[in-house]
Design a protein around this nucleic acid. Structure first.
Length: 272
DNA sequence: GGGATTGTTTAAAC
DNA sequence: CGTTTAAACAATCC
């Protein structure tokens, strides 16, 4: 499941391959028109045709192609992948779109569940309106987090997953961060003591940075480039380790539901 | 066949 | 009434 570190990994991989290219067209594979969010194929292509790719960026879990006019946003959701070359096992029916460039090269958007979407943004205003601060950016300060938590009666896990509150965190890294900070995922945000919110701020940054250094987590379906895998999966402490001993205290990790999401925690270390 | 999976949107509940 | 929570949706695999 591509979260911030996985999207960042993809950005770093494809940036040198895409910057400088000119788009000749973006075609939905198998006529899957829904891949364009809010726009029709012809309208979308009208906006991006002959556009020059100046840069490749990330905002939250959105991958952005910065054009000489606006941005193309790509959200991989659960199973989306961007490929420069198709392998023999890449089935045609799992493709959702193909980007064509004037130099003859292509970029394939493969997504067997087809939740992934392609957007066009005239500017970043729309995205900035619906996304909170970047957890690795300057706006994500200790004070900001403490004030944000104090202002919310929600459970801490659903709050951290809310992209409007903070951008880029998903199920894996929230479970890991709450374990590191010894916070129960169901604890109400405004009841978290200062010591733990300080720690939470710290571990969110270190976990994400470490995951990026390791090219992300390949847990179920994240891969990038020529089928390279992320190396962070082996560093996960609680996610996907149900019934295994907690690395800190030895108690068995349990899996519960919090806000309808599968949630891993150590019941001994993370007391409500 | 039911459940798991993401995030947006919409509806309901507190 | 504003805030918080649940449900629906997209599609596929196991």
């Amino acid at each position: 499941m591509p979260e911030l570190p996985e999207v960042e990994t993809v950005v770093r991989f494809i940036k040198p391959l895409l910057v400088g290219k000119v788009i000749s067209g973006v075609v939905p594979a198998n006529n899957y028109q829904r891949v364009f969010s809010g726009l029709e194929e012809t309208q979308f292509n009208h906006r991006v045709q002959d556009a020059y790719i100046r840069d490749v960026l990330r905002r939250g879990k959105y991958l952005l192609l910065q054009l000489d006019r606006g941005y193309i946003g790509i959200h991989l959701r659960m199973t989306g992948r961007l490929l420069v070359k198709l392998s023999p096992e890449d089935k045609e029916r799992h493709l959702t779109a193909v980007f064509y460039f004037t130099d003859g090269s292509k970029l394939y958007f493969k997504d067997y569940r087809k939740f992934g979407r392609i957007y066009f943004y005239p500017s970043l205003d729309e995205l900035n309106q619906k996304l909170g601060p970047e957890p690795l950016g300057d706006d994500f300060t200790m004070t900001w987090l403490q004030q944000g938590l104090a202002a919310s009666h929600r459970q801490i896990k659903p709050l951290l997953l809310d992209q409007k509150f903070i951008a880029g965190l998903g199920n894996i890294y929230v479970d890991e961060a709450l374990w590191q900070a010894r916070i129960h995922p169901e604890q109400t945000a405004d009841s978290i003591p200062a010591g733990k919110s300080t720690r939470l701020h710290q571990v969110i940054r270190t976990i994400l940075a470490t995951a990026i250094e390791n090219s992300g987590t390949t847990f179920i379906n994240f891969r990038f480039g020529e089928d390279s895998s992320g190396r962070f999966a082996s560093k996960l402490q609680v996610f996907g380790r149900t019934d295994e001993p907690c690395p800190r205290c030895g108690n068995a990790i349990i899996k519960i539901k919090v806000g309808q999401r599968g949630t891993h925690l150590c019941p001994a270390c993370q007391k409500p």
